[in-house]
C-alpha cells in the first residue's frame, strides 16, 4: 500500500481501515455469537437486551447434547465418513492423475475429457438416479451408501494430473526404469512421494466437503444411529426449537474441527483455493 501524502488521502486511508475492521467484525460475529451462546445458561440465552458474553459460564449445554441426543455418535460418524472420503479421494486422484499425467494409452484423451466435462454438473442434478441405484444395491440406511458419492473427486484427478505432468520430470521415471524398477514401484516410490503437497491439498478439501455433506445424507440416512453432525443438528432442531443454548453447543461441535484445521493449515488452504480458481 502506498503511504498517503495529503490530508484527504489520510482521511480516506483511515476510513478504509475503519470499513475493513467493521467488515471483519461482521464476518466473525455469527461464529463468536454462536460460541458464547453455547456457554450460557437457559435464563441468559433469551435475555433482553442480549449480552455478548455469558455472565455465568456453564458447560451444561454441552453436557445436555450428549445426554439428550447421541451427539458423540454423530461426531464419530462424521469423522469416519469424512476420513473414508479423504483416503479414497487421495488414492483415486493419485492413481488416475499419474496415469493421465505420465502415460500414453488408447482412450486417454476421451476418458480424461469425460471426467473433466462431468465435473461441472452439480451433484443435485444427478442425485435422483444415484439414489435409485442405491435402492437396488440395498444400501439405503448404510454408511457405505452415505459415503459413496464423496469417494471420487474430478477436480482431484485434474489437479494431480496437472501436478504430476508438469512438476515431476519424465527423466526421473526413465532413470528408475533403466534401473529395473517396475511401474508399480515407480507409482508408489517415485510419483507418490513427489505428490504429497498436491495430495494433502486435495485431502483437506475432500475432508471439509465430506464433513459438511447434507443433502445426500438427508436422503440416504433415516436412522438416527447413522446421522452425521449435520443431520443430527437438523434433527435436533426439530425437537428443541427454543433451546438455542444446546443448539449452539451442537453447532460449535460441528464447526470446531473445521476451524482447527483452518487455523493450523491456513496458508495451505488459502493457496489451494487460489490454485483451484486459477487452474480450474
Amino acid at each position: 500500500m502506498v503511504e498517503p501524502r495529503t490530508p484527504l488521502a489520510w482521511a480516506l486511508h483511515i476510513l478504509a481501515h475503519g470499513v475493513l475492521l467493521l467488515g471483519a467484525i461482521f464476518m466473525v460475529l455469527p461464529i463468536v455469537w454462536m460460541a458464547f451462546t453455547s456457554f450460557k445458561p437457559p435464563t441468559e440465552v433469551s435475555l433482553w437486551p442480549p449480552r455478548i458474553l455469558p455472565m455465568e459460564w456453564t458447560l451444561d449445554n454441552f453436557r445436555g447434547i450428549f445426554e439428550d441426543a447421541p451427539f458423540g455418535r454423530f461426531f464419530l460418524n462424521s469423522l469416519g465418513l469424512s476420513l473414508t472420503a479423504t483416503v479414497s479421494v487421495c488414492i483415486t486422484s493419485l492413481a488416475a492423475g499419474a496415469i493421465f499425467g505420465k502415460y500414453k494409452f488408447p482412450g486417454r484423451t476421451v476418458l480424461f475429457m469425460a471426467i473433466l466435462a462431468t465435473a461441472i454438473v452439480p451433484f443435485e442434478s444427478y442425485m435422483i438416479p444415484l439414489y435409485l441405484q442405491l435402492i437396488s444395491l440395498g444400501w439405503i440406511n448404510t454408511y457405505q451408501g452415505m459415503v459413496l458419492p464423496t469417494l471420487f473427486m474430478s477436480f482431484g484427478i485434474f489437479l494431480l494430473r496437472q501436478h504430476i505432468s508438469s512438476a515431476i520430470p519424465t527423466e526421473l521415471l526413465e532413470a528408475a526404469r533403466v534401473d529395473g524398477a517396475s511401474e508399480w514401484w515407480i507409482l508408489g516410490r517415485v510419483i507418490a512421494p513427489l505428490s504429497v503437497a498436491a495430495l494433502s491439498a486435495i485431502g483437506i478439501f475432500a475432508f471439509i466437503q465430506a464433513w459438511a455433506a447434507f443433502i445426500w445424507p438427508l436422503m440416504v440416512a433415516n436412522e438416527q444411529e447413522l446421522f452425521n453432525m449435520e443431520l443430527g443438528l437438523t434433527a435436533f432442531q426439530f425437537r428443541f426449537t427454543a433451546d438455542y443454548g444446546k443448539l449452539m453447543a451442537g453447532s460449535v461441535l460441528s464447526v470446531l474441527p473445521m476451524l482447527m484445521i483452518f487455523l493450523i493449515l491456513r496458508r495451505q488452504i488459502i493457496e489451494s483455493v487460489a490454485l483451484t480458481g486459477l487452474k480450474g
Binding site: I31, M34, A212, T234, Q237, S251, V255, F262
Partner: peptide, 13 residues
C-alpha cells in the same frame, strides 16, 4: 473463516 465453516451449524447460528 465463513467459507470454511459447515453450512448447517452456521445456518442454525
Amino acid at each position: 473463516l465463513p467459507v470454511i465453516t459447515p453450512m448447517v451449524p452456521m445456518s442454525i447460528a
